[in-house]
Amino acid sequence: MSSSASGSVAERLRVRGLAPKKRFGQNFLVDEEASRRIAEAAAAPGGGTVLEIGAGLGALTRPLLARAGKVVAVERDRDLAPILREDFQAPVEEGRLEILEADAAQVDWLAALASAGGARPWVIAGNLPYQITGRLLERATEVADDIDRAVFMVQLEVAERLLAPPGGDAYGALTVFVRAAFEVKRLLTARAGAFYPRPAVDSAVVVLTSIRPRRANETEAFRLAVRAAFGARRKTLRNAWRGIYGWSAEELASHAQEAGISLDVRGETLDVEDFARLAARYSR
């Protein structure tokens, strides 16, 4: 990545007396090729409606507008929202772009997509702030049944966790919860130089494609089984699940056997469907 793109962003902020806000986790994407590829993945086929999380200075908004039928850009920074309205005045007036000055973690994503006209596919896209990535991924799983996919730039470590196979160190509760609702693929890796200011870590773009029906419904019983298993990673399931659902040791052994699960292994060896089968035993 050349310094010119980063310098352009820095200058745009400087002339308005602004600087990246650490409290918002602002690291502006300045790699145009990465923006183009994210937009292609989000708005494929052309048309549809994209909810963009954290529009910033519009690096992704612009290529999204070239492909999507309608874009709803969410930006919580009240200093940046006016810049977006100024830079994208024409698509706003044409009704192709709606700018919401709000916290994406609080916005009703489905209502925003529906109010934009509802043209399918429905897609969520954005460069997720590191400090709220977990919350936003959780929101994505909540709406997975009603959207078609999500295309997110996340910290590389998070991407590796989402893609990890059972049994690996990176495989954990986040992997299970996200893969219960989505197929996950890596689109690209973005080095630190793709952002301004330059973060301390690399990032990656993941494409989350909704699975219908889900691999598992995220019931309270399912969440409890997953969290208990990974909350004590070094323990076998016999110990990690001790007392789960109020079951005795004998009841746990019986239900686990009926679900086809060995209690002598660790939770990280189970796939999504294993957790779902145990949770279903409690629900019966």
Score class of each variant (00 low, 15 high):
Leu18Ala: 08
Ala81Trp: 00
Ser4Trp: 07
Asp169Gln: 15
Ala5Gln: 09
Pro129Asn: 09
Leu57Pro: 02
Arg242Met: 07
Phe195Tyr: 06
Ile132Cys: 06
Arg242Gly: 09
Arg238Lys: 14
Glu157Tyr: 03
Thr209Lys: 14
Leu252Asn: 09
Leu278Cys: 06
Arg16Pro: 10
Gln257Gly: 10
Leu65Cys: 10
Gln26Cys: 05
Ala204Lys: 10
Gly95Cys: 01
Ala66His: 08
Arg16Asp: 09
Ala34Pro: 12
Gly47Val: 10
Asn239Phe: 13
Asp202Asn: 05
Ala114Tyr: 04
Asp145Trp: 03
Glu183Pro: 07
Thr49His: 02
Tyr282Lys: 15
Asp77Phe: 02
Leu13Gln: 04
Asp145His: 05
Leu237Pro: 11
Ser6Asp: 13
Leu174Gly: 00
Pro91Thr: 01
Leu128Pro: 04
Phe152Pro: 04
Gly167Lys: 06
Glu157Lys: 06
Glu251Cys: 10
Glu220Arg: 08
Ile83Asp: 06
Glu220His: 02
Arg37Thr: 11
Gly58Val: 00
Glu86Arg: 14
Lys235Val: 04
Lys22Ala: 13
Arg277Thr: 02
Glu273Ile: 01
Pro129Ile: 01
Glu251Leu: 14
Leu60Tyr: 14
Val265Glu: 10
Lys70Thr: 14
Gly17Ser: 05
Pro45Ile: 09
Gly47Phe: 07
Pro82Lys: 07
Arg198His: 14
Thr219Leu: 12
Tyr196Asn: 03
Gly267Phe: 01
Glu220Phe: 03
Gly172Cys: 09
Phe177Ile: 06
Ile38Lys: 06
Ala55Asp: 04
Gly126Asn: 02
Pro166Tyr: 12
Thr189Tyr: 12
Arg242Gln: 13
Leu84Arg: 02
Glu98Met: 09
Ala173Thr: 10
Gly260Trp: 00
Arg12Gln: 13
Gly172Gln: 02
Thr133Arg: 02
Gly69Ile: 03
Val201Leu: 06
Val92Asn: 07
Ala221Thr: 12
Val226Asp: 11
Asn27Tyr: 08
Ser8Ile: 13
Asp148Glu: 14
Gly7Tyr: 00
Ala125Cys: 08
Tyr130Leu: 07
Arg277Trp: 12
Glu101Phe: 09
Leu263Lys: 05
Asp77Lys: 05
Ser8Asn: 14
Tyr282Leu: 15
Gly7Phe: 00
Val151Asp: 03
Ala5Tyr: 01
Val123Tyr: 03
Ala190Gly: 05
Arg186His: 10
Gly56Leu: 04
Trp109Leu: 02
Gly260Leu: 07
Val107Trp: 03
Arg234Cys: 14
Leu136Asn: 08
Asp79Tyr: 12
Glu250Leu: 13
Gln257Tyr: 12
Ala44Arg: 13
Gly260Phe: 00
Glu52Leu: 02
Thr141Pro: 08
Asp77Pro: 04
Leu174Trp: 03
Leu237Phe: 13
Glu40Pro: 03
Ser3Asn: 09
Ala181Thr: 07
Asp146Trp: 15
Arg191Gln: 06
Gly267Lys: 00
Val50Ala: 03
Ala90Cys: 06
Leu100Asn: 01
Arg223Gly: 06
Ser210Met: 05
Ala232Lys: 10
Thr236Gly: 11
Asn217Met: 12
Ile132Gly: 09
Ser35Arg: 11
Val265Cys: 12
Gly46Glu: 15
Ala44Met: 11
Asp108Phe: 04
Leu270Lys: 02
Leu80Tyr: 07
Ala59Trp: 10
Arg198Asp: 14
Val184Pro: 06
Glu273Ser: 11
